[in-house]
Simulated assay, not measured.
Amino acid sequence: MVQVVPPSGGQSGRTPVRTCLGCRRRAEQTALLRVVASDHTDPVPGWSVVPDPRRRRPGRGAYVHPAPECVTAATTRGAFGRALRRAGRPDTTALEALLGQDD
């Protein structure tokens, strides 16, 4: 008889799965980049999408593949606003700078 021993620490050994906002494919959480919303007032009032690679920033988070095409698709479809529950178009400058996009 084979006995299965659960991993130590009470964890099941499974990695959480999240959906990318850009391509809508499911992937392990570790393969995706977490982003959060951040309010700003300078130069104009609004909000921006800020990358959270360490997954430590407070607030509601959303996930996207760290690829320019996924970020562009999410921005075009307005997915960041829906996922982060914010109105209006976000400023994605910080996210694009991290990924090396030139817009």
Rank of each mutant, 00 (worst) to 15 (best):
V5K: 14
P6H: 12
S8M: 03
G10F: 06
G13P: 05
G13T: 05
T15L: 11
V17H: 06
R18G: 07
T19V: 14
C20F: 05
C20M: 06
L21V: 12
G22A: 09
G22W: 06
G22N: 09
G22I: 12
G22K: 10
C23R: 00
C23M: 01
C23Q: 00
C23I: 03
R24K: 15
R24A: 13
R24D: 10
R24S: 12
R24Q: 14
R25T: 13
R25I: 03
R26Q: 15
R26Y: 02
A27F: 02
E28G: 15
Q29R: 15
T30N: 10
T30S: 15
R34Y: 04
R34N: 06
V36D: 05
S38C: 09
S38E: 15
S38D: 11
S38Q: 15
S38F: 05
H40R: 14
T41C: 01
P43R: 01
P43W: 01
P43A: 02
V44S: 06
G46I: 13
W47A: 14
S48L: 12
S48Y: 02
V49Q: 04
V50E: 15
P51Y: 02
P51A: 09
P51C: 10
D52C: 13
R54Y: 03
R55Y: 08
R55E: 09
R55M: 09
R56V: 12
R57Y: 06
R57G: 02
G59M: 08
R60Y: 03
R60G: 08
R60E: 07
A62M: 05
H65K: 00
H65D: 00
P66I: 11
P66L: 11
P66N: 12
A67T: 08
A67P: 03
A67F: 01
P68L: 14
C70V: 04
V71D: 01
V71E: 01
T72R: 10
A73S: 10
T75C: 01
T75R: 03
T76S: 03
T76C: 00
T76R: 14
G78R: 10
G78K: 10
G78Q: 08
A79I: 14
R82Q: 15
L84S: 10
R85K: 14
R85D: 09
R85H: 10
A87N: 10
A87I: 07
R89W: 03
P90H: 04
P90K: 07
D91Q: 05
T92N: 06
T92I: 14
